[in-house]
Nucleic acid binder design. Sequence first.
DNA 1: CTCCAGGTCGTTG
DNA 2: CAACGACATGGA
Length: 299
Amino acid sequence: MNIYSRDNDLIIENIPDFDIEDVLECGQCFHFTKLEEKEYEILACGKYLRVKQENDALQENIENRVILYDTSPKDYENIWKNYFDIERDYKKVKDKIVSIDGRLTSAVSAKPGIRILKQEFFETLISFIISQNKQIPHIKQIVHTISERYGECIELSCGRCVYTFPKVDKLYQVSEDELRECKVGFRAPYIKDAVEKVYNGEITEDSLKSMTVQEAREKLMTIKGVGEKVANCVLLFGLGFSDVFPVDVWMKRIMEYMYFEEDTKKEIIEKFAMEKFGEYAGFAQQYLFFYGRENGLGK
DNA sequence: CTCCAGGTCGTTG
DNA sequence: CAACGACATGGA
């Protein structure tokens, strides 16, 4: 891996096991827009990032080149290195998963560039409350709407404004009816409850991170509208716990297709996967989810 | 028109 | 506990 600045951009060559398309399109993140093939803009951590990956530099003996536009080395060190989980050895992660069960080889090699993003806790919490009983494109739309209406504006050099996801303090001021106008539907009171519990300090990122997964999961589930699945997604994508296995309709189908071959309760599937994959359960889940969804596994 | 979506809640058996 | 309908909204 080789990192250097060119004009105002930050260039990273040869990030192992990284593909910006796999990372963003695998369903863990909703606050981004595709601009071109392998080129995206992302709103995260209170920042705007335009990022592009080139894989056609083979003659220069370079496997891939990722360009973070208008990004200082300092922002890379402080924000994006952590956000993209650059320092984790994903070869080891994938080897481990495949050694546990060789049947995951096809899932892992289909999307070899997945990384579990370290997303902001609050945004992840609200986003996955919204996600229940909704399709990914619509979740993205709602997250964008909430950000445009209540987030902070970042003015780009071209004059266009983009909006970060709002902070708790801001969403605390937003009424249930105003939330409904963002098309969150019956989830409005759920969001309200989550915002209140975070705002008044009953739920904090730090305290959750200091707990065991079980404790943190139970704490999250005291929020109305946060069940087992949403809690697990927040633990995995927003708090850095990797020993969780969110089971949604897709994972249920995929796991029934691969292991159970009959209707099986989500709790059984979750327990089975956690015992099987342990601290790698979250990674295994994401490879399986993306692969299974793209291939319509389990019909 | 009907069915379903990265589910969860409240109500019944 | 287990099962089941309701819940907003939009797309197939």
